[in-house]
Computed example of a mutant assay.
Amino acid sequence: MRSTTVRLWRWRRNPLRRRSDVVEAWVTAVALLLVLIFAPFAGFVAGHALDSSAAHQRTEVHRVTAVLQQNAPVLAGTASQAGSSHVQVPVRWKAYDGAVHTGTTLVPQGLKAGTPVVVWADHAARLVPPPPSAAQGLALAVTGGIGAAAGVCLLVMMACSLIRTELDHLRMGEWDREWADKGPRWSHGRT
């Protein structure tokens, strides 16, 4: 047996078409339009905002050469563990205005006092984590943009699904009322 699909049946005049079918067709069309317009727009806006934020972070901090104030200890049993080869050590550095500042930063284990290390400081001469590189900023922007676009798609799909579920409940109610009206006449006389 071969089945044929009638496309766009909800838009055509048909005696079996219900108002809920037309509403569902419009909801689907609007959902598709929202996804096609707002998902790319949200992705672009989010990506641009994240890229601008990363670029701003790069302008707000600067590299400074600091000097270790004490030997960096070597912790027993951690030299071979990934991510544990750094320890907090006090450092001292001179800011652009000539003022001397101190703070603590992560350095590799075993460095000797007086060893110069590169740290990042903000305009208030506070030590901060390094800013994201241009490549990291781009990766963050792309990931955030894709996430924002996917979020818009998910929200639209959820809203469309909720509306369609409610329309299905309405259709079932209509079916029950019609069956209660017409069913007894059809089954009259049958045993």
Rank of each mutant, 00 (worst) to 15 (best):
N14K: 00
P15N: 02
P15F: 01
L16Q: 07
L16W: 12
L16C: 03
R17L: 08
R19H: 12
R19C: 04
R19S: 11
S20W: 12
S20Y: 11
V22P: 13
V23I: 08
A25H: 12
A29P: 11
A29C: 06
A31W: 05
L32A: 12
L33C: 12
L34S: 15
L34Q: 11
L34K: 04
L36S: 14
L36P: 14
I37R: 06
P40N: 10
F41P: 02
V45A: 14
A46K: 04
G47C: 04
G47N: 09
G47I: 02
H48D: 14
A49S: 15
A49M: 10
D51T: 05
S53V: 07
H56W: 09
E60D: 13
R63N: 01
R63P: 07
R63C: 04
V64T: 09
A66G: 04
V67W: 02
N71R: 11
P73V: 10
G77C: 02
T78W: 06
A79G: 13
A79C: 03
S80P: 07
G83W: 08
G83S: 05
G83C: 10
S84H: 15
H86L: 07
H86W: 06
H86V: 07
V87S: 00
V89Q: 13
V89R: 11
A95F: 10
Y96M: 03
Y96G: 07
Y96E: 08
D97S: 03
D97F: 03
G98S: 02
H101M: 04
T102D: 10
G103W: 02
G103I: 01
T105D: 04
T105I: 03
L106V: 00
L106G: 05
L111H: 10
A113Q: 12
G114C: 06
P116I: 00
V118Y: 00
W120K: 15
A121H: 07
A124C: 09
A125V: 01
A125Q: 08
A125M: 05
L127V: 14
P129E: 12
P129G: 05
P130N: 03
P131C: 10
P132D: 14
